[in-house]
Amino acid sequence: MLEIAGLRAGYGPIEILHGVDLAVAAGEVVALLGSNGAGKSTLNNTVSGLLRPVAGSIAFDGAAIAGWPSMRIVARGLVQVPEGRRVFPNLTVRDNLALGSYRRGGAARARNLERVAAIFPRLKERWRQLAGTLSGGEQQMLAIGRGLMGEPRLLILDEPSLGLSPLLVEEMFALIGRLNADGLAILLVEQNVVQSLAVAHRAYVLENGRIALSGKAADLAQDPGLRKSYLGH
Rank of each mutant, 00 (worst) to 15 (best):
76 R>K: 15
120 F>P: 05
100 G>F: 06
38 A>N: 06
89 P>S: 11
110 A>C: 07
39 G>T: 14
121 P>T: 12
56 G>R: 11
40 K>I: 11
139 Q>P: 10
110 A>E: 15
73 I>M: 04
95 D>L: 08
112 N>D: 14
56 G>I: 13
37 G>E: 05
58 I>K: 00
103 R>K: 03
135 S>C: 14
138 E>M: 11
56 G>L: 07
49 G>Q: 09
39 G>C: 10
125 E>K: 13
72 R>S: 12
102 Y>M: 09
40 K>A: 09
99 L>W: 02
81 V>T: 14
139 Q>K: 03
65 I>P: 11
88 F>D: 05
84 G>D: 06
43 L>G: 01
92 T>V: 13
119 I>W: 02
111 R>K: 11
96 N>S: 04
148 L>G: 04
65 I>R: 05
143 A>C: 14
148 L>S: 02
66 A>I: 05
88 F>V: 12
146 R>H: 10
151 E>K: 11
136 G>I: 08
105 G>R: 05
154 L>M: 06
65 I>G: 07
86 R>D: 05
123 L>C: 04
45 N>S: 04
80 Q>P: 12
115 R>S: 00
145 G>A: 06
144 I>A: 02
38 A>W: 02
141 M>A: 04
71 M>N: 13
86 R>W: 10
74 V>D: 07
64 A>M: 11
96 N>R: 08
105 G>S: 10
87 V>L: 09
103 R>A: 14
78 L>A: 11
57 S>Y: 00
42 T>Y: 03
114 E>I: 00
37 G>P: 09
59 A>P: 00
112 N>V: 03
120 F>L: 08
88 F>G: 04
109 R>K: 15
103 R>D: 00
139 Q>H: 06
59 A>D: 07
85 R>Y: 00
108 A>W: 00
115 R>P: 01
50 L>S: 04
133 T>I: 02
133 T>D: 02
113 L>W: 01
124 K>Q: 12
92 T>E: 08
147 G>M: 07
63 A>F: 02
146 R>F: 01
84 G>W: 08
108 A>F: 01
132 G>H: 07
122 R>V: 14
134 L>M: 09
95 D>K: 14
